[in-house]
Design a protein around this nucleic acid. Structure first.
Length: 477
DNA sequence: ATGTGC
């Protein structure tokens, strides 16, 4: 596969259409030597070529520098489909529908925070149920759950979690319109009822961080980011409910595909034409799951604020932004001079709207959209913005995180959870986790260097780096 | 990612 890669610009590699029979477009991989070297050892490139074979794909099959192997589509992949000839695929969104990140920033200094670090870490761990199968913040009956599924973070605010002002700092204002809660299976509903306000497991986390480097003074001022200030980052998704929605529609589409005569190089790429009842059904269900994720992060955010209030009454944790990195979105883009609607799949990739974009909240029109890039455990995280070049070249998209280089299984063999915990504590990071297994699977050695990932998208010009954050305390499933 | 899977 790597023989078909050629460098076509700064941090850009094209995967030739010769790489595989049936490709409609080439691949475009963002990376430097470090990234490309690690790519070779995986099957992710093959997945980039597979995605290029799907009907109606436009431009390129894109790979962000944090790309790694996923279900059908690579994680770190972006693919835009023409509304008439294109398809939609649950594999292009992922099992954790609307998994995403939010960051809340304060004017509290690290020095003020440290004496209370243990108590706050334990307080968050107690306030936010963590781990596989975690439940307990709210017990929703079916009717109330469905309100969350149609109204997203708005419903959480109506129930007293956070403020209406928060909604202006959430992608899509915290609510995807035209969601179809009534279309979800009984099993999906059942799995969601007790999971609102829960973190889950895997790479999900709540992290207390400190702003430790500002790269773009002007934008940082606009975002109210100041060196030495404490922030809280939350990474989680739609839990068992979103997982069930994905599973249900993979089954439906696998069967429906023959009817539409869609042929795919890998059965995990099962998809249906965008103009089909199965596509409508998936989109409406996916939006309901996304609204669950948006509400979930809103509830968790409000509960974390409550913990800080106990020790620092009056200190604000202002929501800077909340972004999803597992979504399919119907969007208008100007691509190679033509303005058209596309279904943009971003799986382990973040939307990154450029300065001036009309869908941005007014306060971010000048800077461009805040993009939140969590690092791996114990490493730094970043705040970026979208750029005009990214809007033009890759449907206003960028990376989403460090990206795995080791499977969970391989990671577990390199270090025990207890050792990972000790390593983090020796770095001065407070840790509370539901399971040692997760700590071992999420060891930073299992991930790429996030700094390299972020510098690739910056050098390629599809994002700008605004600020870096260092972890102080981590709460995990 | 996941009421994790051979």
């Amino acid at each position: 596969m790597k023989d078909f890669l050629s460098r076509i610009g700064p941090c850009r590699w094209e995967l030739s259409m010769e790489a595989q029979k049936g490709m409609h477009v080439p691949g475009l991989v963002y990376g430097d030597e470090y990234i490309i070297d690690r790519l070779e050892k995986e099957e992710a490139l093959k997945q980039v070529a597979n995605v290029a074979c799907l009907p109606g794909i436009t431009g390129y099959s894109y790979a962000m520098p944090d790309i790694h192997w996923g279900y059908g589509f690579p994680i770190g992949g972006v693919a835009a489909f023409d509304m008439e000839e294109g398809i939609i695929s649950p594999g292009g969104v992922g099992y954790d529908i609307s998994c995403g990140v939010r960051i809340m920033v304060s004017h509290l200094t690290e020095k003020e925070f440290q004496p209370f670090a243990d108590k706050i870490t334990a307080g968050i761990f107690a306030a936010v149920p963590c781990g596989v199968g975690s439940k307990g913040v709210m017990h929703l009956d079916e009717k109330e759950l469905k309100r969350f599924l149609s109204d997203g973070a708005e419903r959480a605010v109506d129930r007293g979690y956070g403020s209406r002002e928060d909604l202006l700092s959430i992608e899509d204002r915290g609510r995807l319109e035209n969601a179809g809660p009534e279309r979800l299976s009984g099993r999906a509903i059942e799995r969601g009822r007790d999971q609102m306000g829960t973190l889950g497991s895997g790479n999900h986390f709540v992290e207390v961080q400190v702003l430790d480097e500002i790269y773009d003074r002007e934008v940082a001022d606009l975002f109210d980011l100041h060196s030495g200030s404490v922030a809280v980052m939350i990474h989680c998704g739609s839990r068992g409910l979103g997982h069930q929605v994905c599973e249900d529609h993979i089954r439906i589409m696998s069967q429906a595909m023959a009817k539409y005569r869609i042929q795919v190089p890998d059965r995990q790429l099962c998809s249906v034409p965008l103009a089909s009842p199965e596509a409508d059904d998936y989109l409406a269900s996916m939006k309901a799951a996304a609204n669950f994720a948006l509400a979930n992060r809103q509830v968790i955010g409000a509960r974390v604020r409550d913990v800080f209030q106990r020790y620092f009454p009056g200190v604000n944790l202002t929501l800077l932004y909340d972004v999803s990195h597992n979504m399919a979105h119907l969007e208008t883009h100007c691509f190679r001079g033509k303005r058209k609607r596309f279904c943009v799949h971003r799986k382990g990739a973040t939307r990154a709207l450029p300065p001036g974009h009309e869908d941005l909240p007014v306060k971010y029109r000048k800077s461009g959209q805040p993009v939140i890039i969590p690092g791996s455990m114990g490493t730094c995280s970043y705040i970026l913005t979208g750029t005009a070049l990214g809007a033009e070249e890759c449907f206003a998209s960028t990376c989403h995180g460090a990206g795995r280089i080791m499977s969970r299984h391989a990671a577990k063999k390199t270090a025990r959870g207890e050792d990972v915990r000790k390593e983090l504590e020796s770095m001065g990071i407070h840790v509370m986790a539901e399971s040692y297994r997760t700590l071992s699977e999420e060891s930073p050695r299992a991930y790429k260097d996030v700094e390299r990932v972020v510098s690739v998208v910056a050098e390629a010009g599809i994002s700008r780096i605004v600020a870096r954050l260092k972890p102080l305390a981590v709460i995990k499933g």
